[in-house]
């Protein structure tokens, strides 16, 4: 009986944490917008035609849960950092 209870609690805890994580990464907490590297690229395409994302800003990105079996999503803050760096590079080039 005790074992069954522990098993049930463990399963509930496991799936709860996974669901919370998925919801968090969906950006539903604090209405946080999430963008991926691909869409961020298309967003910058029109306004900045020859920008090069700076390695520094990408190195600053902090993906929670790093898994090669997952597609890549960055938080909007990381995307903003990439944009700022690109703009700075443009200014330097000009």
């Amino acid at each position: 009986m005790k074992n069954k209870t522990i098993q049930a609690i463990t399963i509930v805890l496991f799936f709860t944490l996974i669901i919370v994580f998925v919801i968090y990464k969906s950006g539903l907490f604090a209405n946080k917008e999430i963008v991926n590297i691909n869409s961020s690229k298309s967003l910058t395409k029109d306004s900045q035609t020859d920008t090069i994302p700076n390695l520094d800003s990408i190195l600053k990105s902090k993906p929670i849960i790093s898994s090669s079996k997952s597609m890549i999503i960055l938080d909007s803050e990381d995307f903003k950092a990439i944009e700022i760096d690109s703009t700075m590079l443009d200014s330097i080039k000009n």
Partner: peptide, 18 residues
């Protein structure tokens, strides 16, 4: 040219399930 951010939840699930 698919916006992956629209399926962020599925992608997060894939990552942790892996």
């Amino acid at each position: 040219g698919f916006p992956l951010e629209s399926i962020a939840g599925i992608i997060a699930f894939r990552g942790i399930w892996a």
